[in-house]
Design a protein around this nucleic acid. Sequence first.
DNA 1: AGAGTGACTTGCAATATGCAAGTGACTGTG
DNA 2: CACAGTCACTTGCATATTGCAAGTCACTCT
Lengths: 117, 117
Amino acid sequence: MSQKFRSPCPIATTLDLVGDRWTLIILRDLLTGKTRYSEFLSSPEKITTNILADRLERMERAGLIAKSPYQQRPVRYAYALTEMGRGLHPLLREICRWANRHVPGTWVPPAQFMAED
Amino acid sequence: MSQKFRSPCPIATTLDLVGDRWTLIILRDLLTGKTRYSEFLSSPEKITTNILADRLERMERAGLIAKSPYQQRPVRYAYALTEMGRGLHPLLREICRWANRHVPGTWVPPAQFMAED
DNA sequence: AGAGTGACTTGCAATATGCAAGTGACTGTG
DNA sequence: CACAGTCACTTGCATATTGCAAGTCACTCT
């Protein structure tokens, strides 16, 4: 579970876990109800298939998400946030608040996403 | 000021601006009083000189920081957060809260850093 | 003149990302 | 029962980013 991080600073550690261009995008999609590979692919940011597969595996290893089969023959998995992953929701809300305030042209997220809990 | 972002989603846009391994580390240092090149280099994460120079330039172009000379002959610059950059403080606090709660072994930041305003 | 300081810049190897095409395990249709 | 279709990946390869080490530049100080 615990890996080798650059430093014990909580900011550096968090960046080691989710500090890239895609992880938080997938997390956003999971928070808004998406669960499957094809659903993540359909987002407007157009993540590529290899990166998506890689991020899902990393996120699972990091304990942010868990996968469970939604069908047999062939076995296919749906992805869901763990408690740890859901814990990043306040951070995503804060990111939205910042962008809406400081970067003109950004979409205002649905009220449901911004509401606490 | 506004560039080409992957999508108008505030999360995607924010990641385009600060979603890498180093930018928020530098921001943390600026928030804790560091202002110079050599001070950023001395942090425990050991950023390399070329990446630091690159990130400082990007951050300036993005409007997160501004530089001003602290001496002449030779001219040398100190870096300071803009209003936009300081606006990320709540986000860093949220990152710290999450890491402290979910990743064992992370340092608890000084109370001053965690206090609002 | 020569050492020291602070802030970078350069070159290059290692790693990560992006793009397009391919694969595997099936199901359902003619 | 061959065959097109679906979904979830995997693979190969070109390009971009990162990391490491060494070098440069504009000075000041001894």
